[in-house]
Design a protein around this nucleic acid. Structure first.
Lengths: 350, 350
DNA sequence: GTGAAAGCGCTAACAG
DNA sequence: CTGTTAGCGCTTTCAC
């Protein structure tokens, strides 16, 4: 009645456990006939491999760990989807951790993944993280580490990001082309690279279009609907009201959008707005929110591919892993998604 | 340079592996002094437990498997959050599978969880699932199984749901109280219990308010924005136009809402609308969508508690588990969330 | 092409 | 309170 093991199958067929193991793993040195025999017997006995035992012995789990801030942020959920979809085809399963932007939870998550002997870790760093020892630990244990979106160059891990600078530049220039010229920016925490990059893209787009950069038009929010609302409130109560806002991500943009609507401004006629991230709600708000799409599913797939590369490199230990060389960094092209909130030229919204 | 094991610690301290193991696990039979000693040594050597070995030996993984249709549906993401938050405090980790509503993936997911020897499985059944053998397999292997939201009574597993009938009744009655009287319903696949329950709640609310139930006002959709749009289109092109819609979930509601807006109807003045599920986008659409909140985080916590109960019952094998008795079923109270799409009496929207 | 033997790292009796 | 022993179920040399 207890769980069926390869010993049971071996006994049943008067053969040895090792033969059964090899047969079930399609080892080349087993004849097709016995493989057949063993596989059907396994089916009949309703045998299920014990992966713990297998992994303990072989040193591989075929599990890849993912650490993200939150799967309630559509972007991360979509990246995970991309990873999973590809991982499945390669025989990998996914163990998911959410840090909820909390540094300690992130440490715990990494710890657990390491204890579980995952074959690799793909992560996007939590907002609150300031110490990176846990990631260094991953590298020290020679577990392949790949970062995406919220990366950290100092960790020298292969990574995949969208070109945040370019995306911000595109968003800002789009607003300029729509005829807005007092464009404000609500950014995020500057210790996170992507928000700084987006800020730089915004600034450079203004400059290269001969618009002045006004510090008073730059707000620093915390990536929430609420902080977007507050940022907009501040901007519109200042002496230098903007006529458009580029928000560093869609949640902030949504908050700002709500405030602007509430104040009775017409959007996009009077005020324009572009977000960043193409969140799932963005097409559905009114006016629908223009944004920069970050190519989430691709990002996931690229991240998984980087993991496979790192794994191959690790196993192929003929080369002693030149730690000196720069890790591979894949930069995806952002895509501008124009919706009602910035489409002043057409004004084709209902 | 290789991974540190308890043997290394034992050697270091001239003691035995078993003592080290016990100390690290806070076994009562070890003196506080040696525990102290061993723990600091472990820290210094940067020891990390090998959970595979531990689990293989002990028979417990402290991992709980979750199978959901998709974490891109806010409700499921929120339930998972609820489970995780509680599980963490009890020393459990979560292994997450998404079936993407696909029956085969669901089978694969369950299979993998079983192979990984998770201590229990919490699941919500995929739309496409019609065969339940994989869930029966879980029970056969004596792995505690808990279902939530998309449950199946025949599986005789403990479960937690929101009172779907009551929620639908509340939603419909709310529309009636707002003065609507030709209330349509866009439902979901009827082989899924919750959608049938919601349909019944709708019907009974009409009846108990002396409104006639008109089959032509009932549409059967597939839980997507698109199918909501189509359902609404059909209803508004029929000879019997409704003046309100109760949608079986928010995605459908959103699609219907979009169609209605596009047609130029004023909402809620002319047409009222209530959804179900309180998706993350629902407060942000225009008009914001009234809905039934399903208490997702609570649902997650209750589900985890049911798992703990089942586990306790399994271990406490003095009683030979009366399979005859009905499994525990927790029914949460739904909460009506009134927003702009149905708030005709106040009409306090911007 | 098949089987015997060893052991992955840990925990759980049990003896001391 | 500590140490010895055995073995979880599997994979992997290495003989045959």
């Amino acid at each position: 009645m207890a769980r069926i093991t390869i010993h049971d199958i071996a006994k049943e067929l008067n053969t040895s456990p090792s033969t059964v193991s090899k047969a079930l793993n399609d080892h080349p040195s087993i004849s097709v006939a016995t493989k057949e025999l063993i596989k059907t017997a396994a089916q009949n006995l309703n045998y299920k491999q014990n992966r713990l035992a297998s992994s303990l012995r072989s040193g591989r789990t075929n599990i890849i760990g993912i650490v993200i801030p939150s799967s309630e942020i559509g972007f991360f959920a979509a990246v995970v989807h991309g990873i999973e979809r590809l991982a499945r085809t390669k025989g990998y399963n996914v163990l998911l951790f959410q840090s909820t932007e909390n540094g300690e939870y992130e440490v715990e998550g990494i710890e657990t993944l390491l204890q579980t002997s995952v074959d690799g870790i793909i992560a996007s760093i939590a907002m609150e993280t300031t110490n990176y020892d846990h990631f260094l630990e991953v590298k020290k244990r020679k577990v392949p580490l790949v970062l995406f979106d919220r990366t950290k160059d100092e960790l020298k891990a292969p990574s995949v990001v969208v070109d945040d600078y370019k995306g911000a530049f595109m968003a800002t220039e789009h607003l300029i082309q729509q005829g807005y010229n007092r464009i404000a920016h609500i950014s995020g925490p500057q210790h996170i690279k992507i928000f700084n990059d987006r800020l730089c893209g915004y600034v450079d787009a203004l400059r290269s279009n001969n618009l002045t950069v006004d510090d008073d038009l730059i707000q620093y929010g915390k990536n929430s609907v609420e902080s977007g609302r507050m940022g907009a409130e501040y901007l519109f109560n200042s002496s230098k009201k903007p006529d458009a806002i580029f928000a560093a991500e869609d949640f902030t943009g949504l908050g700002a959008l709500q405030y602007i609507k509430k104040q009775g401004y017409k959007m996009p006629e009077q005020i324009g707005m572009v977000g960043f991230g193409n969140e799932s709600f963005s097409p559905y708000v009114t006016p629908s929110l223009s944004t920069i799409d970050q190519q989430a599913p691709q990002m996931g797939e690229e991240a998984f591919n980087l993991f496979l590369e790192a794994l191959a490199q690790k196993n192929n230990s003929t080369a002693p892993t030149l730690e000196l060389e720069q890790p591979k960094k894949i930069v995806l092209d952002p895509v501008l998604v124009v919706r009602e909130s910035s489409d002043r030229k057409r004004e084709n919204h209902s």
